[in-house]
């Protein structure tokens, strides 16, 4: 059962520029994709959705929790995987990184450590516990970030361009992990093929929803538009 995600008349701007136009949305699907060009507001959308930034107006509710105001409940409801693991990993060793979020959820140090060990064991990475994150590869660090999020057992996980910069084998591995997750997944990307089989796709353009529907409707339209912009026609428009 996916928790309901509600954007209630959300607005967000910076330096007088509107980044997210007034936006009202309800999402209940288990696999949701968000596509858009660079600068279309995708990352801002992700930050609003996870309660990392305050909307100028309106509120975002996930499973009934105001994710910006009620951080205690929010971290148990929604987690996020950023594009660059170096922006996400806070601690020098793998076990500390994974147990940090659990400590923030109010668990004791021993309990947090035990849960972190358990999640490492579940993914066959027990040997990583005391390793320094600096010595891991980019793909391995991505996995550490994912495990740190999974350990906190949120009901929704947001992936912001999860495959950027990964080599093909690492990417395929992450794709399999992502496909197997029981959580609601919100996947932000500019690569339509990675959203095949999703339940719903939103297309964001200049902070507004350009299209919203099944992937087989939205993705071909998005791709056609991107091809048109990328081809000679983009100049003909001028």
């Amino acid at each position: 059962m996916s928790p309901e995600i509600q954007f209630d008349n959300i607005r967000y701007g910076k330096d007088g520029r509107e980044i997210i136009a007034p936006l009202t949305l309800q999402l209940r699907e288990r696999r949701i994709g968000l596509v858009g060009r660079n600068g279309s507001g995708k990352s801002t959308f992700a930050r609003l959705l996870t309660g990392l930034i305050a909307p100028d107006a309106g509120k975002v509710l996930v499973g009934g929790v105001d994710v910006f105001k009620d951080r205690k409940a929010a971290v148990g409801m929604i987690g996020v995987l950023f594009q660059n693991p170096d922006h996400q990993i806070i601690f020098p060793t793998v076990l500390e990184e994974i147990s940090f979020g659990l400590r923030q959820q109010g668990r004791s140090q021993a309990e947090a450590r035990e849960t972190a060990q358990a999640i490492l064991a579940k993914f066959g990475r027990s040997a990583w516990a005391d390793r320094s994150v600096h010595g891991l590869s980019q793909g391995q660090r991505h996995l550490v970030c994912l495990l740190a999020v999974l350990a906190m057992a949120p009901k929704v996980i947001v992936f912001d361009e999860p495959y950027a910069g990964l080599d093909l084998p690492t990417r395929m591995h992450l794709e399999r992990l992502l496909a197997g997750l029981g959580q609601t997944v919100i996947h932000i990307t500019h690569e339509p093929p990675s959203l095949q089989g999703y339940d719903r796709v939103l297309w964001l353009e200049a902070g507004k929803i350009a299209q919203d529907g099944r992937p087989e409707q939205v993705l071909p339209a998005f791709e056609a538009e991107m091809m048109r912009l990328g081809g000679g026609d983009a100049l003909a428009d001028l």
Binding site: T50, V75, F82, N84, H87, G101, R103, Q104, G106
Partner: peptide, 17 residues
């Protein structure tokens, strides 16, 4: 970015039970 990552996982002070 790190400040955001901290916030995403519950901020800098543990939740008081």
């Amino acid at each position: 970015y790190v400040a955001e990552a901290l916030r995403a996982r519950g901020g800098i002070d543990p939740v008081e039970e």
